[in-house]
Design a protein around this nucleic acid. Structure first.
Length: 567
RNA sequence: UGCUCCGUGGUGUAAUUGGUAACACGUCUGACUCUGGAUCAGAAAAGUUCAGGUUCGAGCCCUGACGGAGCAACCA
């Protein structure tokens, strides 16, 4: 028996979720020999999203915390919807999150034989029968939630006959849809799932693992609990919508069990995020309709999308930790996710200079041709990250929005007659500027610098209100920067009864900027490297980035008090 | 108008066997700052859906309303 690690210290106890409390109680009570064994059961019909991460963290997390194991089990009971393509991505994403199932990679299809035998056993025990009525008839007999169902005329079919038919079903002797195997439970049950649920149907499609071997496939309800049972699962954690399935889960386990061991299903709330959609169906639609550029589009809440956006596994786990597990259907504020990634990257991401919307500044009293090496701290939150050298010269780019011809009082940046520090370099003063006569666009700004104000020099004590990031024009590297915003402009796009979620798509969810100017040190950046572009936000190198064509994705902006003041 | 589940600041969660609502995000102040970031200090914000009941005492227990979600796929 595994030693149970239940903390009894007097330290302020971090509250445990109701799920964890149940697990603790079960372990204390010695149920299932004090074992905990969980499973994560994805269906390979799509990519994992952050909602799955919530389940993964619980499944793997609880097992890890209480000395048990967690299996990975692909729920591949429907060959027409599932594809191998998804299996690899699912495994990659779980590993990326930092969890491992070791050798315990299972498939519901591993148990097709046992499941079939169990079905045969149920028939023999008079607990299942073949029904060869059309789907519509069976459906009509099911009744409604408010009206009990009626029994199928085949309910009392002889055991031998059902046995023969079931065998025939699997041999391919009957057409798809012509007959099904049903459990014999209670057509009058107030729980729809107990009204003689269909447990096997004929599907004549090739299965990605078993090929043409089977012509009948078990339904979810007839596979999940039994697979749990076969694997010795103790706690089968799933989302709230399976709550009404639990009686059926238990009923089937009861037909199977021979001793005290029994898996237990516990349901928790799923993760919903504001300004996005989380259902696989809707995400698939966005991909298929070309609204986004694939499953890993950085605007997607998929794990591969978040990864490409620049999210770290740690930030996702932190976020999930913050929102907890309850039975309340919640809509989680995406700003909490953003907080988590900012907090993480603030400590880890090196600072660099990147100018998104360049405006040239010419320092008129700075010697032409001169280049100074300026030393900059890579991360003020972590001295250990060291410093780097950035070239400074007579012409630099600053951010267009860091200059205003006629600024309000609280504008702490560059404007005619005003002084500002170029971070790590000198204080400059705006003397004049050139404006396009027709468009009114500011084309160049002319400044003078004060040589005694160089950063780090003893004479550099002079204070200015604003500090700008910059890039030396002669040394700047061009880059493409993709600015992402929320995919939808409605908090709950999928929750609007009469309206299609597409109606709430944010037309400005992606803004691509070309000819951005970044500091030369970024030339060596590799895909997925993360940086803080100072004063702007966190950016991540995209997969499409090359040394010739740097591409950055904005993960999240920095908190911007100035922008907020201007709203 | 059946069954199951759920109602605590704007949002997400807490509140040990009933003891007088806590934390985080967000918002708003102020301090500090060579990132209008970070950090630090502080504030506003719920009397726990409502109505009864039990109790010295109820967010926790009881009853009844009201509100929300899920369930009628040969999907998971």
């Amino acid at each position: 028996m595994t030693e149970i690690n239940i903390s009894k210290s007097d330290e302020p106890k971090a509250p445990v979720s109701f799920v964890e409390q149940i697990i603790i109680d079960d372990l204390k009570a010695g149920r299932n020999n004090g074992r905990i064994h969980t499973r994560f059961p994805p269906e390979p019909n799509g990519y994992l999203h952050i909602g799955h991460a919530k389940a993964i963290c619980l499944d793997f997390g609880m097992a890890e915390k209480y000395g048990g194991q967690c299996n990975l089990r692909f729920d591949d009971t429907n060959p027409v919807k599932e594809e191998v393509e998804y299996i690899d991505s699912i495994k990659e994403d779980i590993h990326w999150l930092g969890f491992d199932w070791e050798e315990r990679e299972y498939y519901a299809s591993d148990y097709f034989g046992k499941l079939y035998d169990f079905a045969v056993d149920l028939i023999k025990r008079g607990l299942a029968y073949v029904d060869d009525q059309p789907a519509e008839v069976i459906s009509a007999q099911k009744g409604t939630p408010t009206r009990p169902g009626t029994e199928s005329p085949y309910r009392k079919r002889q055991v031998e006959e059902s046995l023969d038919l079931f065998e025939g079903m699997n041999k391919g002797e009957f057409d798809e849809g012509s007959m099904v195997l049903r459990a014999k439970i209670d057509m009058a049950s107030p729980n729809m799932h107990m009204r003689d649920p269909i447990i096997y149907r004929i599907i004549k499609a090739s299965h990605h693992r078993t090929g043409e071997k089977w012509k009948v496939y078990p339904m979810y309800d007839f596979a999940h609990g039994q697979c749990d049972f076969f694997e010795g699962i103790t706690h089968s954690l799933c989302t709230l919508e399976f709550e009404v399935h639990r009686p059926l889960y238990d009923w089937l386990v009861d037909q199977l069990r021979t001793d005290d061991y029994r898996p237990r299903q516990i349901e928790f709330n799923r993760l919903n995020l504001t300004y996005t959609v989380m259902s696989k169906r809707r995400l698939l639609e966005l991909v298929q309709e070309g609204t986004v550029n694939g499953w890993d589009d950085p605007r997607m809440p998929t794990l591969c999308g978040l990864r490409r956006r620049g999210y770290t596994p740690e930030s996702i786990k932190r976020f999930i930790d913050m929102i907890g597990y309850t039975k309340v259907e919640a809509l989680n504020d995406v700003s909490m996710l953003e907080y988590a990634i900012r907090e993480d990257l603030n400590k880890r991401a090196p600072r660099v200079f990147g100018v998104l919307d360049p405006l040239k500044v010419i320092i008129t009293n700075y010697p032409e041709g001169r280049v100074e090496d300026v030393e900059l701290i890579n991360n003020p939150e972590d001295e250990g990250m060291g410093t780097r050298i950035v070239p400074f010269s007579r012409e630099v780019y600053i951010e267009n929005e860091d200059f205003m011809e006629d600024p309000p009082n609280k504008f702490f940046r560059l404007a005619p007659g005003r002084e500002v520090r170029l971070k790590g370099a000198y204080i400059i003063k705006c003397e004049s500027f050139r404006k396009h006569p027709e468009t009114g666009v500011i084309e160049e700004v002319y400044c003078t610098y004060d040589p005694v104000t160089r950063s780090g020099d003893s004479f550099s004590e002079k204070k200015v209100k604003g500090t700008l990031h910059w890039v030396s024009a002669a040394h700047a590297v061009d880059a493409e920067v993709r600015l992402y915003d929320r995919l939808f402009d409605h908090e709950d796009p999928a929750g609007q009864k009469e309206e299609d979620f597409r109606k709430f798509l944010n037309p400005d969810s992606l803004k691509t900027l070309r000819k951005c100017k970044v500091e030369p040190s970024l030339l060596s950046a590799r895909p997925l490297d993360k940086f803080q572009f100072q004063r702007l936000g966190y950016f991540c190198v995209d997969y499409e980035s090359t040394e010739a064509e740097l591409v950055f994705n904005r993960t999240v902006s920095l908190k911007d008090t100035w922008a907020r003041l201007n709203k």
